[in-house]
Design a protein around this nucleic acid. Structure first.
Length: 514
RNA sequence: GAGCUAUUAGCUCAGCUGGAUAGAGCGCUAGCCUCCGGAGCUAGAGGUCACAGGUUCGAAUCCUGUAUAGCUCGCCA
């Protein structure tokens, strides 16, 4: 069949050849034509290449990072921060109005434990001098001693109840804890260059409980069960056996009711078209319940809600758990990465100006890339050496490639010529680069639709690989054919543009020298 | 007991809306600066795509079951 069909298809300007190969009909693209097409597109769109008007007039609300302020930011938290930030930037790039929300945990059990531990054991002066480390030590000690002495949990409950009743000492301590936790978290976000548009703690929604209860009671969806108020979710085809609990038998709000209140609040405030939650996989059921509960309520916008879950990070075969002290602080990892990068710069590029800043940009980006480069769903085993690898498919590899082509453009010392004769390009290595450049917008769109930044990471790796092969095979500036140089400069400019865009979308830096 | 997610080279991963001989990186082996940045490039070795069925002209990819791992299943968040 293929043998009969192929001869009937004529060659044209864009198709250089048609041939039969077994059951397939192969089309060969006219390379020059293809390359010219891609580079014209990049020249026309400039730094916006890859973005269409997909998001025009639409609003995204994205909930990410959302730490518990009773505990320090550790390496496993990087996942939500890095993935969330990338999803935010990707939407922003293709025209969405984005609202990044840090919905931090400033309420509940952990704070009760911390309050109780503080009352029992803390040296206020020491805590004041070094709050993060001292509070962490208290938290760990509480959980250790709780093993021997279960009554401690009652102490925690008492503290929480005193807090809820407005006890001045508790309120003042609690404020101190969240202020410190907040200051610490924001310091890390600054280091990572991550920004939020709204910070709202769970405590803000704790007193919105009755509004939610009323909605469900009016709709006839709420029912009493063992003293608690629940909404059954097992009514229709997509059964969720576990009900959604609105109110505990003690009359307090729950994670469910607070999140429902928060989502209603957000829709009222932002009228979003899409809302994405970036959390680990343990919360898959939770969000299914929330979304279903709102669907039962008849809200028509719930179809725009999605959960972008990611796999768990473990540490030498053990769960990373703050209460047992089995954690690695995120900041420590970032500092190590920066130090290591500085050493490498001293070795490879000692005369680089602004070394310290570049070391920060490369070191931090390496850690971010290690986190966003594989698909969200994968579980990750934390391995510092793996995270700080600088060759092969890594963040520094992409940045290095970008810097290398920036270097060519610097040496060329004049802007890419829009009139360059692109028909001179047609070598295989050039074609491979062009194909990656052409592929980028599609990967970007998938990354946006599926909340999967790793597509962009893969795309950049493929582009960098093709670009480095091109670099090694074909000279750009060396040689006496000015027209060829002008044409290849256009290709180099395209590489630079797309690599920079991709790096920034992933929340990384794109230094021009390193 | 039920459910979710995963399982691809020694290690880390890509490929998953079905198509040609399953691809990278790391590590290992052997190479590449008379030429734009060697954090690079080239070549080689390395695979029963967890297992068993099924659908199909064709399955790593879709369906069913099994195994293994992680997670979850109303008063933690």
């Amino acid at each position: 069949m293929a043998g009969k069909v192929a001869p009937l298809l004529t060659d044209g300007e864009r198709i250089a050849g048609v041939s039969a190969a077994g059951p397939y009909v192969n089309f060969s693209l006219n390379r020059s034509c293809f390359i010219e097409h891609v580079l014209s597109e990049i020249a026309a769109r400039g730094e916006k290449y890859g973005s269409g008007d997909q998001g025009a007039g639409k609003t995204l609300v994205i909930d990410f990072a959302s730490p518990n302020l009773a505990r320090p930011v550790h390496i496993a938290h990087l996942r939500s921060i890095a993935i969330g930030q990338a999803i935010y930037r990707i939407h922003d790039f293709v025209g969405w109005k984005c609202v990044g929300i840090n919905h931090w945990g400033d309420y509940g059990t952990n704070f009760g434990q911390l309050l109780a531990a503080y009352l029992m054991w803390a040296d206020p002066e020491k805590v004041k001098a070094n709050p993060v480390a001292e509070l962490l030590a208290l938290y760990i000690r509480f959980n250790e001693e709780k093993e021997q002495n279960p009554d401690l949990q009652d102490e925690a409950r008492k503290c929480l109840s005193r807090l809820a009743n407005g006890d001045a000492e508790m309120v003042s301590l609690w404020r101190f804890f969240i202020d410190e936790g907040r200051r610490e978290a924001e310091r890390i976000y600054d280091i990572l260059d991550v920004h939020f548009d709204e910070f709202l703690g769970e405590s803000f929604f704790a007193d919105k409980l009755e509004d939610v209860v009323e909605l469900y009671q009016k709709a006839g969806l709420a029912e009493e069960s063992d003293g608690a108020l629940i909404v059954r979710l097992d009514g229709d085809g997509e059964d969720i056996p576990a009900p959604c609990m609105l109110r505990t038998s003690n009359g307090t709000s729950t994670y469910h009711s607070r999140d429902i209140a928060a989502l209603l609040h957000r829709h009222e405030k932002y009228a979003f078209d899409r809302v994405v939650y970036v959390t680990d996989m343990r919360q898959i059921l939770h969000f299914r319940q929330i979304f279903k509960a709102l669907k039962l309520l008849g809200v028509d916008w719930i179809g725009g809600a999605s959960h972008a879950p990611f796999g768990m990070m473990s540490f030498q075969g053990e769960a990373i758990a703050t209460r047992s002290g089995n954690i690695v602080l995120l900041e420590d990892v970032l500092e190590k990465a920066i130090e290591l990068t500085a050493d490498i710069i001293d070795e490879k590029n000692p005369d680089l100006k602004g070394k310290a800043e570049v070391a920060r940009q490369v070191g931090i980006s390496a850690v971010i890339f290690a986190d966003v480069s594989s698909r969200r769903a994968r579980d990750i085993v934390f391995d510092l050496n793996e995270m700080l690898r600088f060759d092969g498919e890594t963040g520094p590899y992409i940045q290095y490639t970008h810097a290398r082509f920036c270097s060519i453009l610097r040496k060329h010392d004049q802007p890419a010529d829009p009139m360059a004769d692109l028909s001179m390009l047609g070598q295989l290595a050039e074609m491979r680069v062009a194909r990656q450049l052409e592929e980028f917008p599609r990967q970007l769109e998938s990354a946006c639709d599926e909340s999967e930044p790793s597509y962009i990471a893969s795309s950049l790796i493929d582009l960098a690989t093709a670009a480095n092969k091109f670099y090694n095979e074909l000279p750009v500036l060396v040689g006496d054919d000015e027209n060829l140089t002008a044409a290849r400069i256009r290709l180099v400019d395209g590489i630079r543009t797309v690599m920079r865009t991709g790096l920034l979308l992933l929340g990384m830096n794109a230094p021009e020298e390193m």
